[in-house]
Write a protein that binds this DNA or RNA. Structure first.
Lengths: 191, 191
DNA sequence: GTCTATAGATTGATAGAC
DNA sequence: GTCTATCAATCTATAGAC
């Protein structure tokens, strides 16, 4: 029993996107050739052009797929709890390594996409929308208690977590969890 | 009157490093070929190999040159003032566009170097030292008033500024200066 | 130390068979 | 839609003249 063309097509597409996720995180956008991408997905470069038209097309599709999946996953668990401080702990842990992707991969990929957006105006709105969605999600999550949402808190918390994670990558000892919590709590209380 | 060999040598070295700064910020580490680098410096690829042995050598030299120059510049002006709130404003403005480099170039370059360090363990200590130096500098700068320095404040302030600047690049309206000040003040007062 | 020249590998992108 | 085959451009790295 043979699978339909559509199934085959969808599988190839997904394989290419998965390969792109891994390779771009590992070697960067510029460091990932179309050939390497296709090979990692067990296809040939022709398939990449047929599906996405080129490397930029792959990136747009990748951004579209990730869209708010990550933001949603980061926030999701935080909603479950009632304690304000635990909110922050879960938020921080999920941010460092959100469920849908391995933490190692995710952070590097996110920075690659950010750089790509800075350099390619046509991709900027897509990436900007991701951050906007993350800001809202976090603002809503931490506002769940008293019902009042404050966008600026989302902006600040995301900023802090990004910067802390960056420093932690270079030297884990430089960013103890307690320091992260202290900073997040301070921002939360600045409302 | 002819210049000495040493002068010529030093000029070539500096030209190559300047070209590397500009090109890496613009196209990234992987996106910058040795040929393009040499050409931008008005030399040939052979000069790059003679001076630095290859692309990694250029990056190490670049890191060494930037070292704490940027950190020092960011902090320097902040020392001049007495008012605590003005401290933060100057800090934020200098961070967004520190004197030694154009703001546009600096932030992108810094992210490229961070990604490079994440992927290349041998470069990690160099970049980690840059961040460590920046943490100390900021911690000392904001502690100038009461004399008490707190490393964690440096970690948190840097983290926040990095994350805010990233969001601002994608959408300037998303990060008003007042939000930045509010966040920085909250972190500062968390001591 | 610096250049030119070049070899060998890799890249992006396309044409054509199936 | 997917593959093979392929061309032209670009890249890294080295050898050798000066």
């Amino acid at each position: 029993m043979r699978r339909t063309q559509d199934e085959r097509k969808a599988e190839t597409r997904q394989r290419l996107l998965d390969a792109a996720t891994a390779l771009i995180a590992e070697r960067g956008v510029a460091g990932t050739s179309i050939d390497a991408l296709a090979e990692a997905a067990d296809r040939t470069s022709g398939a990449v052009y047929a599906h996405f038209g080129g490397k930029e097309g792959v990136l747009v599709a990748l951004l579209d797929e990730l869209k708010d999946a990550v933001a949603a996953a980061i926030v999701e668990e935080s909603q479950a709890d009632d304690d304000d401080d635990q909110h922050l702990e879960v938020l921080w842990r999920n941010f460092v390594a959100p469920p849908p992707l391995a933490g190692d991969v995710w952070v590097l990929l996110e920075h690659e996409l950010w750089l790509y957006a800075c350099r390619n105006p046509e991709a900027r709105p897509l990436v900007a929308a991701r951050y906007e969605s993350a800001r809202r999600g976090i603002a809503d999550a931490v506002a769940a208690d008293d019902g009042e949402s404050d966008d600026a808190v989302g902006t600040l918390l995301i900023a802090l977590m990004i910067g802390l994670e960056m420093q932690r990558r270079l030297d884990p000892a430089a960013v103890p969890d307690e320091v992260a919590y202290r900073g997040m709590r301070a921002l939360l209380e600045s409302r």
